[in-house]
Design a protein around this nucleic acid. Structure first.
Lengths: 182, 182
DNA sequence: GGTGGCATGTAACCGGTTACATGATTAT
DNA sequence: ATAATCATGTAACCGGTTACATGCCACC
């Protein structure tokens, strides 16, 4: 019963939260908006919705009347919302920053609506803390290794580090944005 | 025979190029360097090496003498190097930037050694071209949607855009780095 | 003789990719 | 009528995750 939820599952839960949608609607989101990091393939989305439904995390209701392939609109159940909230409030760990930065971005996108401003700011501050620690270790690694690295490898690493530095600056700016707001 | 090669497969081919290593060596690279976006799990690496071997892309030779679990060092065959080169010189497409930016970074890291300065610069210029086109479309999307988006979603998108802007600035700086060099 | 590091492997499970397939409704 | 779009589905395949397992060697 307590099956794990995959990334796509959380993306769907987040999108459905406060926005009941059909599989087709969700596909269009993935196809036409910057959420296009996710695949809009039916082979990904419909099975994912079924899994969520079987796990009792979303409820679907068929719109209109006749026909075997009629539009079905999904929305999270209370357990679904709880699972989403639990995911959003998971403590941020070093590994998240190293290997799952995109997932963190996704989590943050849903925060306001589900866990509110406080949750969002708490998240940003722990992200800031992790990045503040991580960036210097990357810089040190680059310094100690660059003599032995080919230029493109060095530059690739530099690119990665700049990415993290950008995230860090962004996190600080985002905290200010919340402080300014209201 | 013409099986597709997964990302991990290319990562291994790239690391082995000019650097014959054992599975264990490769695991340590993934565990201890900024290549840690890849898993260092034996369940990922050893099967991947076997696949490459079966496909004739790497050749392994057992070091030392006795024992059933003796260190085995792999290196790319000429077909392996050809496959790597082919991957590295694949034309850069819009979809790569949208959905596979990390893969592009990985590709670039191996460029110098395999396709040389020319290949690296060509890659950077096409990356620059793609990003120069993509960033404004993201900015426009944000402008047109931000009124309807919760703050955290807006900020998450802003984060993504800044990431791409950073990549763009980096690509330009990287081209200069090549021009300055020799 | 026991701990820890070196070194390699396997198997169950699961989710995404790709490709194929169906059928209703709307627009030309 | 027929093409396009709405809308949902399935099945084979494949690779990564997780967990488990084996065995050698060095050192204390």
């Amino acid at each position: 019963m307590k099956q794990e939820i995959a990334r796509l599952g959380y993306a769907l839960l987040g999108l459905l939260h406060g926005n009941p949608s059909s599989g087709y609607d969700l596909r269009k989101i993935f196809a036409l908006t910057p959420m296009s990091t996710f695949s809009d393939s039916p082979g990904a989305i419909y099975p994912a919705l079924r899994r969520l439904q079987r796990a009792g995390l979303v409820r679907g209701q068929v719109e209109g009347g006749s026909g075997s392939r009629r539009r079905q609109v999904f929305q999270p159940t209370s357990t679904g919302t709880a699972a989403l909230k639990q995911w959003l409030t998971l403590p941020l760990e070093h590994e998240d920053v190293v290997r799952r930065m995109e997932e963190l971005s996704l989590r943050f996108a849903f925060m306001d609506l589900v866990v509110g401003k406080h949750g969002s700011v708490r998240f940003l501050k722990s992200l800031e803390r992790e990045l503040k620690a991580y960036v210097p270790t990357l810089r040190r690694y680059l310094e100690s290794m660059k003599a032995k690295m080919p230029l493109s490898s060095r530059l690739a690493l530099e690119n990665g580090i700049r990415g993290y530095e950008t995230h860090l600056r962004w996190a600080r700016a985002a905290v200010s944005a919340y402080e300014k707001e209201v």
